[in-house]
């Protein structure tokens, strides 16, 4: 077997006659960080929910670790867009609840102790016993991250986890997630529409065309060296070529992409990979 952990095969989502996306194929290797970038309405969140097992695809299947998934799993932890913390539990309580689901045999004290450790790892050692209402937006999302990481999942799924935060908080959390994910070689899949965030975190960036009828139009391989931080990212050679390529896609090529008359070399199962950081960007797709 290859190193592939997730294989998404021909999934589609239709509501009656409307097709949100179809014929979507991609894989995620173990230890790989994949970002999905696209405009609103192309079904990004639906794809993440399908990977999480919260929704089923209208067509197609998702294979994880050799088995088709049929529902949610503790192996695929989700960091939600809204932090999705239970407001009646403290920060520790929220993480401990997740741990009590992961480790059925653990005592309450064991869960609490492990929860406190997980919160300290994301820098929340001073806010262990606070309720979500007493935490800032960034701190709440840190609890969400701690809750997901404490599960020690085989894969991390993130649905625009930083989009509700102010720019400064978002930046420091991005650096932190980059560090945590690199340290643990965590397999991860993230939805975003922040180009810099994708370049900072992702090994590969999947670019989705506009819905309805959205497809994965291009796969961008991020060849910038790791570790990447927000401080050094924009000084890296090739960064601007990479960023321009993704931005150009979002501004013009995402709308121009037509699956019935695809650019040369494009096929749903074999979306061409581009390496803009070491290549010159390819010419725009034919009109």
């Amino acid at each position: 077997m290859s190193n592939q952990y997730v294989s998404v095969e021909a999934i589609a989502r239709r509501y009656g006659p409307t097709t949100i996306f179809e014929d979507v194929w991609f894989g995620i290797d173990r230890g790989e960080f994949v970002c999905l970038v696209g405009h609103s309405g192309c079904g990004k969140t639906t794809i993440l929910n399908i990977l999480a097992g919260l929704e089923g695809p209208t067509e197609g299947a998702v294979i994880v670790d050799g088995t088709e998934i049929s529902g949610p799993s503790l192996d695929r932890a989700v960091i939600f867009q809204g932090h999705a913390l239970m407001p009646w539990m403290t920060a520790t309580g929220n993480v401990a609840f997740a741990l009590s689901c992961r480790h059925r045999g653990w005592s309450r004290a064991q869960c609490d102790a492990a929860a406190r450790e997980a919160l300290k790892r994301v820098g929340l050692g001073h806010a262990l016993d606070r309720k979500p209402a007493e935490l800032s937006g960034g701190m709440k999302q840190r609890v969400g991250i701690a809750r997901a990481l404490a599960l020690n999942p085989k894969m991390l799924l993130m649905d625009e986890p930083f989009s509700a935060l102010d720019a400064l908080t978002r930046g420091s959390l991005q650096d932190e997630v980059a560090r945590l994910v690199t340290e643990t070689q965590q397999t991860a899949f993230m939805i975003t529409h922040d180009v810099d965030e994708a370049i900072l975190l992702a090994d590969r960036i999947l670019l989705m065309s506009n819905g309805p009828g959205a497809r994965i139009a291009e796969v961008v391989v991020n060849t910038l060296p790791k570790p990447r931080t927000r401080a050094n990212l924009h000084h890296m050679p090739g960064y601007h070529a990479l960023r321009d390529h993704v931005l150009d896609f979002l501004i013009s090529r995402s709308a121009a992409f037509d699956a019935k008359a695809p650019p040369a070399g494009w096929a749903p199962r074999a979306v061409p990979e581009v390496r803009p950081a070491i290549e010159t960007p390819p010419p725009l797709a034919a009109e």
Partner: peptide
């Protein structure tokens, strides 16, 4: 819905979801 989704991704089970999530949320 997001709390129920959290419970689902944690594989909390019907009973645990009812007692630990739905009951306190609806209390």
């Amino acid at each position: 819905r997001e709390w129920l989704n959290v419970a689902r991704t944690l594989e909390a089970g019907t009973w645990k979801t009812a007692i630990r999530v739905i009951l306190p949320a609806a209390a």
